[in-house]
Design a protein around this nucleic acid. Structure first.
Lengths: 126, 126
DNA sequence: GTAATCCTTGACGCCGGTGTCAATGTCAAG
DNA sequence: CTTGACATTGACACCGGCGTCAAGGATTAC
């Protein structure tokens, strides 16, 4: 299939696909006229990349997963490098959560001081 | 005092101070030679801005607080506009926390699937 | 033939808050 | 006078993942 179809099927833009290629995450066979030609496997790669991006991974983070799929594994997570990334991201996310919780507490305290009646509820994740 | 001293006392760069001025958050009297001259009140403003930035506010978010201080209030939080920003930021932070918690759960689940032995602990904020 | 779609590469724009360099002026100390 | 520490404005760089426009070639439909 060509880039337009892949984009449609993957639910992203052709721009994004070309960008992934430029970043070395995907490659494309070229037809005689210079058009990129993709396989179902490529759709698989793109889908993997997309799902990783939606949980906050960067393209850099996605590399091991793509490499893992290319190596023939059924899942992009089946390789130790991918697992290592999972661990690292988990730690990063935890850090961010801690930071945000601290900020929230700080802002809530300030708000309470500035406006005693405005009790901030929500985020009752004790 | 001149910009260098203010920067030192506020713990930021002169670049940042000029940027705040460019963004209309602070102003400076000019000496005959063109040098910026600041007062203690300006230090106060900058300190306020800094503390807001550190909890994740943007310079745009900081405007009401600066305006409040300029209006003569003892605290930058003493104005309804500031309180409104506090509320909005609190909601934004809560959103971000929710997003991160969801992502964390997702990543943790993936990790567990990929590596059954790798139980992700931490982030026990039940 | 020509219009309508598709494709190509290249390159600037965005967002926020600076870092950093450039080229130049000011001023006090030696 | 010279050095050095300070000041000025201006402007590019950064980070990430694209959006978007430009200018053109390819292919299909009619």
């Amino acid at each position: 299939m060509r880039i337009g179809e892949l984009a449609r099927r993957a639910g992203i833009s052709t721009r994004a696909l070309r960008y992934y290629e430029q970043q070395g995450l995907i490659t494309a066979r070229r037809a005689a006229n210079g058009y990129r030609e993709y396989s179902e496997d490529d759709l698989r790669l793109v889908t993997e990349i997309r799902s990783l991006l939606t949980v906050g991974f960067t393209l850099e983070d996605a590399r091991p997963f793509v490499a893992c799929l290319r190596a023939g594994h059924a899942s992009g997570s089946s390789c130790p490098e991918s697992v290592a990334v999972y661990r690292r991201k988990l730690a990063e996310i935890d850090d961010e959560i801690r930071t945000l919780l601290a900020r929230r507490a700080e802002v809530a305290a300030q708000l309470t001081t500035a406006c005693p009646g405005c009790l901030p509820r929500e985020q009752d994740e004790k």
